[in-house]
Amino acid sequence: MNGRTYDEVSVGEELPALPIPLTRTLIVATAIAGRDYQDVHHDPGLAVERGSKDVFMNILTTNGLVDRYVTEWAGPSAVVTAIKIRLGVPNYPGDTMTLTGTVTAKHDEGRRVEIAVRGENGLGAHVTGTAVVRLPGKGAI
């Protein structure tokens, strides 16, 4: 797995888009892997009773997918120092969420790179936010 050094990244760089098919199994499996047993993330009947149209992805998974998205791009040496997200429309089964990202800032102190991340599904923006990763210096990888 290749990675990026701090110097190789420039503000304005766009990350390759990552489409994620939102299967029912993904929504349930990720919730359980994070020990989130709230019924709205696995029981369609109770989800409807609670005002949703179906089960929906939990926020820990959205964090996990944003984490995966930025570190796949940044490489295994990158250290994630912040993930700040706001949820919009839910991720329901059968849809696809496409993650996109743009480098918005570089901080030489700590070689931190800020990435604005957005995840869109068929209903609109599921997630908007920022991730910060610390990248290795020149010659480190």
Partner: peptide, 29 residues
């Protein structure tokens, strides 16, 4: 479940190769 294939989460040698003391957990976890 996340489809995350970053080797530093499961492969001790790969984690050490990045300067870490060993396997680390995903930050989001």
């Amino acid at each position: 479940a996340m489809g995350d294939r970053n080797p530093v989460y499961l492969d001790d040698a790969a984690a050490r190769a990045t300067g870490r003391p060993g396997i680390v957990a995903p930050a989001s976890m």
